[in-house]
């Protein structure tokens, strides 16, 4: 299995093996590979595995020690204080390493991970694969439901990774160095998007066996587009910031430092009656064989 850490050189990969990682304050990479997670679970270190699929999917089967936090609950509790309460209820303290997974090519996991990081839980990673892929590899699962004693977690909002509509509008007007990235599929993007936005569809950032391509590949894809390494990049998608959450992490993995998410995305933008760029000169929808 391919290792998917922020640093992908052969030397660091070797070092990682020798170090046999996990420790209490183990700092997770952006994407956590299956072996690292399994080793964390086996050593009963205080890793918290968060399953963001529907509750009934979790009840059927999940990764050992995982707790259930369906995306819908995160979206219902869309206030930083409430998210911190959720973290505390799941027994996540400020130093607990958290690994999030889903069964939706990483998009739901990405949205939840981003939310955790936004309220100050920096030590959060995405599992490199979906639950289905985990199963296909024959890795351990269980049915036992877990609860952990309540932990204490500080609220420490990381405002530099969040933007709202007015920020997007202002940036589009007066900050030419800011790049808006639309994460929806090509035909949706062509139909309408926020003026000036460029398209990096979520379908582009994943690979067949991992929710995200490796860092080197992502870097190349984005460099091809002539995007500067220090650019401020805002990602958005169609409705609640899931697809754009995945693109957010793709950009982070590619080494971009200043990435922000507009979680309310194009749905809110349209509802607010903000300007759109449309392309009506071609009948491209008729090319789709769907």
């Amino acid at each position: 299995m391919r290792s998917l850490t922020t640093t992908t050189t052969a030397a660091t990969a070797r070092k990682k093996k020798e170090a046999k990682v996990p420790d209490e304050d183990f700092k997770l990479p952006i994407v956590c590979d299956a072996d690292t997670l399994r080793s964390l679970i086996r050593r009963k270190k205080s890793v918290r595995v968060v399953d963001v699929r529907k509750a009934e999917d979790y009840q059927r089967e999940h990764i050992p020690t995982a707790v259930s936090l369906p995306l819908a609950r995160v979206l219902e509790n869309d206030q930083p204080e409430k998210i911190v309460t959720l973290l505390e209820e799941l027994g996540i303290s400020d130093s607990t390493p958290v690994v999030v997974y889903d069964d939706t090519f990483g998009a739901l996991a990405a949205r939840v991970a981003w939310t955790f990081q936004y309220v100050g839980h920096d030590n959060t990673a995405l599992l490199e694969m979906t639950f289905k892929q985990w199963k296909e590899l024959g890795l351990e699962t269980e049915k036992q439901q877990h609860t952990f004693s309540r932990a204490r977690h500080l609220l420490n909002i990381k405002k530099e990774i969040y933007v709202d509509a007015s920020y997007v509008e202002a940036a589009a007007k007066s900050k030419p160095s800011t790049l808006l990235v639309d994460s929806r599929e090509r035909l949706n993007y062509l139909t309408e998007h926020i003026p000036g936005a460029r398209n990096i569809p979520y379908t582009m950032v994943g690979s067949e066996d991992s929710i995200l391509r490796n860092a080197e590949e992502l870097k190349r894809l984005i460099e091809n587009r002539g995007i500067a390494n220090d650019a401020e990049i805002i990602t958005y998608c169609g409705s609640v910031g899931t697809l754009s959450g995945l693109t957010y992490y793709a950009l982070k993995l590619a080494g971009f430092k200043n990435v922000k998410l507009y979680p309310k995305s194009f749905k809110e933008w349209k509802a607010l009656g903000k300007p759109k760029e449309e392309f009506k000169e071609a009948t491209y929808w008729d090319l789709s064989a769907e």
């Binding site: 599929e185 090509r186 035909l187 379908t203 067949e208 491209y284 090319l287 789709s288 769907e290």
Partner: peptide, 13 residues
């Protein structure tokens, strides 16, 4: 198929 999903419109012609 994969290339059409990643870089095109999810269909080939």
């Amino acid at each position: 198929a994969s290339l059409s999903e990643a870089f095109s419109i999810g269909s080939a012609h």
